[in-house]
């Protein structure tokens, strides 16, 4: 319990670390695009990135953008234009110059934990490789937990495509069965979840519509993935939706395993 409290205090102080902590905390991490369905030869999507409680109101922390990875329709990386970070949100523009679907993600794979050095407890985060050399030789009580976290959203210029949606095989990933930019309220959407590239049955997926400020009930749906790792999403009303899941039931990392989390923002349009 003490450790947990310490962790959450660190999380509050350092949003960069909050990014690596499982979504057990109430804060949600999201990337909110200015539009998901676009047309023309060239467009720009502006994205708000926040660690917040509200959906989709930036009310807690700006999201660090160190782990931002944007994949274009051809599978190549797209360079965003980082506008900057305020107190409550970060903003960046994504140029869309190729027809098809873009995957905009904050993906991190590394380790997080602490060690004792000269009687003091030190915190550590970074890649597994960096941990080998980054932690001093005299350190004792080294406790490191591998983490794999992904926060993403999707936008499409013109007709949807699937090249950018290919899984990387690391952590929890969502492989759309229904295309993420072809979602309509009232039509069931199917998404397959993978853990390290393999279908993840029995995963608890939280699915909730934006606009939380203007309603009394959270109205969160809990969806369990089926034997093939597929979650069926039913959005009754059009709007932006937030989807979140993690291993270990969203509370504790599995013993000795990697702490994994996944979150996405999906837009359901009116039929």
């Amino acid at each position: 319990m003490t450790i947990k409290r310490t962790l959450s205090r660190v999380a509050l102080a350092l949003p960069a670390i909050a990014l690596l902590i499982a979504p057990a905390s109430a804060h949600r991490r999201w990337l909110l695009p200015s539009a998901t369905v676009l047309s023309g030869d060239h467009e720009v999507v502006s994205v708000d990135a926040a660690i917040a409680n509200g959906l989709f109101y930036f009310d807690h922390h700006a999201m660090p953008l160190d782990d931002l990875v944007i994949t274009g329709p051809d599978g190549k990386a797209v360079q965003p234009k980082i506008i900057g970070s305020g107190k409550y949100r970060s903003v960046f523009d994504v140029p869309l110059d190729t027809q098809g679907t873009y995957r905009i993600a904050l993906a991190s794979n590394g380790v997080f934990g602490s060690y004792m050095l000269n009687g003091e407890r030190k915190r550590w985060r970074g890649s597994a490789e960096a941990a080998k050399t980054g932690i001093p030789a005299g350190a004792t009580e080294v406790q490191l937990t591998p983490v794999a976290s992904r926060v993403e959203t999707f936008v499409t210029l013109g007709a949807p495509s699937t090249t950018a949606l290919k899984p990387t095989g690391k952590g929890i990933e969502m492989v759309p069965v229904s295309h993420p930019n072809d979602l309509v309220a009232g039509e069931a959407a199917k998404m397959r979840f993978l853990i390290d590239g393999k279908p993840a049955p029995g995963l608890d997926v939280e699915f909730v519509q934006g606009g939380t400020r203007y309603r009394d009930k959270e109205a969160m749906q809990h969806i369990t993935t089926d034997a093939d790792g597929i979650a069926t999403l039913n959005a009754a009303a059009p709007g932006m939706y937030y989807l979140e899941t993690s291993n270990g039931g969203g509370r504790e990392a599995p013993k000795g395993g990697t702490r994994m989390s996944y979150a996405a923002v999906l837009e359901f349009l009116p039929g």
């Binding site: 047309s39 023309g40 467009e43 013109g158 007709a159 349009l269 009116p270 039929g271």
Partner: peptide, 20 residues
């Protein structure tokens, strides 16, 4: 300014064929 920007507002048409 290219007027194609607002074509997705014709939501049904855009989804059924416009986008292609």
């Amino acid at each position: 300014e290219d007027g194609t920007k607002w074509l997705p507002d014709l939501r049904t048409w855009w989804r059924h064929s416009g986008r292609s």
